[in-house]
Nucleic acid binder design. Structure first.
Lengths: 209, 209, 209, 209
DNA sequence: GATGAATGAGTCTTCATTCAT
DNA sequence: AATGAATGAAGACTCATTCAT
């Protein structure tokens, strides 16, 4: 999610902006957003306290910026990779793989995005969910496409399916985060794909249902 | 989830304790845990500020107590209702139904449990997740039982399935909460059960997978 | 201006309120409003920093309250004493005497009212001048009455005369304040009355004018 | 008051100095000295923040310089015009006319001189009053001269008369400023001269006094 | 037990000033 | 000379908690 796709040359301003953002991610992940003090972030970024305010409007904006920056980079990458595929199931798999990879690669970032960024309804309504809708929209698009092509079961509302899929991945990430395992997050992908696509109950018993 | 199964007579102390807890739920839901002030809770409960500390150790303990009280009542009810069933799929359905009912019935409580109670890793590790494990254990037990009885697909790790199911319900609740819909939360149950049990992909295409 | 006319018993709250106000007057007079820190006021009043905010909304409100408290007490006294007189010139004399006495008696208060309370247009428009209008209205009333009775020259606009009289007293106070003299402020009254009532130029030369 | 009597050619440095001073007057008048930020002044003057410090020692010096610059120009003009007159009453009239003209012509400047420049005892003692003494000395000289020549009443202390006259004009200016009238300040001069020279009380009633 | 007035530690933010370029 | 990015000291205010009544 971070790095990689950056242009050859970054302006000095952009470099410092990212240094501060990185410091904020690390500090927020370590101490939590509320316990973190602006001065901690400044020290970690190796700048003066006041400098933070030359790049960000305030503490909350720092948190919002983490979300926005990482998210928009991620969504772009997602769209690029998905565009090249035709099979909806394949698109879904790639989407979830990128999701798990992006977060699995950067534990501190994952912390901030999974937890600190969801600390209140106000914050979620104002920031988290707003951005998340782009992701959910992409996901829903894939599901609807799959239904049209007959690759996905048609008797399930795409809105609900979107929530179930997102909820599943999201919980996977959160429990990986909190359990502090050594497992690679991505390793769970095949199993999860099977479960989501085929369900809990074997086919021959579906009539029972 | 609250009330209902309590004994006939509650001690005056217990009555006031619950009054405070209810006030805390409402205030936390309205303003968010951090923005809520102890004095707000006291006013809502119609007691003096200092009185809160005769019943709870402090602000954080108030939040923990909400979780614990509601959760233990809920888990008890869950176990009682499930014990009477034999079919794992039925158990699962009842479990999720109770989950959705309990939260769908009390929006303020749902707010607190879904959001305020998850505001930091520290809090989740210390309180939220600890209590949640009882719920997750119950869920996992049902899934394992289903696999043993051949009612559930055996090629899926029960740990993963537990997370997927919990993640799905959890997300359902959260999006219901944030969207502020008029929908009854419980109404989504049949659709979700179908999706979880049969998966996204129709049986005849499973080989493709 | 302060004290004197207070009721027999003051509530404990009112006592503490006045203690804080007195501390604020002294601190503002010593260090100036802007240089004064809230913690200075709290220390002087012998209360905790936070206690200030139980009695006043903030630093600015402290300054406004000094003005309002002292001014309303003063205006009341003024009206009471003037009501008993009939001669406009006498009324004027009493008014100015009370003015000079009230401020001459309490140098710190005079400092705050003459200087700190006039630090910006915004503050003057919002607070100082608004209150002052009551005083100016009283003054103007006396002048108009004097003109009607033929005791004061009729060819002078009362609005202008009001300003001239107020400006003269006000400047007298300010220069007394800044010169840090030992003179009693009140001692200047007879001279000033003569000047205001008879003017700079002897009568026999008025035609020259 | 500004410009006018300056030499034909100003050094580039002096030009920029004045540009900054003008910017400071406007910004201080608009936002008040304390609320004004150095960066506001720099922007208004169309120079970089740091440049201000190549011309002025700091924010306070900017305010002092406004006072000094404008005042010394004013005093010079005053002395020149008065020197040509012989009648003390005429001198007084010219002095007050110039005073009212100078401020009436430049509202922003008047703001700064009447209000911002008097924000604290420290500032007044250190700067405002010090410069003002030149003005007051001039005024006092005229009054004493008038008394010697028998044109002014001898039974009034010149010090007091000076204060009364200055206070009257000063208040006139301040109330003109705050009332935000459309009146020309200077228009009040004749009336004020009459009041100051002949007093409030008609001659035939002076014995009453 | 209940009260609620008092406490005081804790922190985000502003902005005058500096100095490397 | 001019720039403007960076600095960092400083302080008003909040609010969880206590404790004398």
């Amino acid at each position: 999610m971070p790095g990689g796709q950056t242009e050859r040359t970054l302006s000095p301003r952009e470099i410092k902006r990212r240094k501060i953002l990185r410091a904020a991610i690390d500090v927020f992940a370590e101490k939590g957003y509320f316990a973190a003090r602006m001065t901690d972030v400044a020290h970690r970024a190796d700048v003066a306290d006041g400098t933070l305010y030359l790049y960000f409007e305030g503490k909350e904006h720092l948190l919002v910026s983490i979300f926005d920056d990482m998210f928009s980079t991620f969504i772009q990458q997602l769209q690029a990779e998905i565009a090249e595929l035709s099979d909806p199931l394949e698109k879904l798999r790639v989407m979830l793989r990128l999701h798990l990879q992006a977060l699995g690669r950067d534990r501190a970032l994952a912390h901030v995005l999974q937890i600190e960024t969801r600390h209140s309804r106000r914050f979620m309504n104002l920031f988290t969910r707003g951005r998340l809708d782009e992701y959910l929209g992409l996901l829903r698009g894939i599901i609807e496409e799959g239904q049209e092509l007959g690759r996905f079961r048609r008797d399930i509302k795409p809105g609900l399916a979107t929530k179930v899929v997102f909820g599943a991945v999201d919980e996977l990430v959160t429990s990986w985060l909190l359990a502090d395992r050594e497992t690679r997050l991505e390793a769970q992908l095949p199993n999860m794909m099977k479960l989501l696509s085929q369900g809990l109950v074997p086919c021959e018993m579906h009539d029972v249902e």
